[in-house]
Computed example of a mutant assay.
Amino acid sequence: MIETLKIKLLGGMYAQQEWECVLEIPIDCSLDELHQAILGAVGFDNDHMYEFCIASSYNSRSAQRISCDDDRVTQETVDTLLSKRKGKKLYYLFDYGDSWLFQINNSRKKRFNEKPDVFYPKVVLENGVRPEQYPEWDE
Rank of each mutant, 00 (worst) to 15 (best):
M1S: 09
I2D: 12
L5E: 06
L9M: 14
E20F: 02
E20S: 13
L23V: 09
E24H: 14
P26E: 04
C29K: 10
L31Q: 03
E33Y: 11
L34T: 02
H35D: 00
H35C: 05
Q36A: 15
Q36H: 13
A37K: 12
L39M: 08
L39V: 06
F44N: 00
D45C: 09
D45P: 00
D47G: 05
M49V: 13
M49H: 09
E51A: 10
I54K: 05
I54D: 01
A55H: 05
A63E: 07
Q64T: 11
Q64M: 09
I66L: 04
I66F: 09
S67K: 14
C68E: 11
D70E: 11
R72V: 01
R72P: 00
V73G: 04
T74K: 09
T74W: 10
Q75V: 11
V78G: 14
L81A: 11
L81G: 10
S83P: 00
S83H: 08
K84S: 08
R85W: 09
R85L: 15
K86Q: 15
G87L: 07
K89D: 06
K89T: 05
Y92C: 03
Y92N: 08
F94T: 02
G97R: 01
W100M: 00
L101S: 05
N105W: 03
S107N: 05
R108Y: 12
K109P: 04
K109E: 15
N113Y: 04
V118G: 06
Y120W: 02
Y120G: 05
P121F: 00
K122L: 15
V123G: 03
V124Q: 08
E126T: 15
N127H: 05
G128M: 07
G128C: 09
V129G: 01
P131H: 06
P131Y: 03
E132G: 04
E132F: 11
E132A: 12
Y134L: 05
Y134K: 01
E136R: 15
E136S: 15
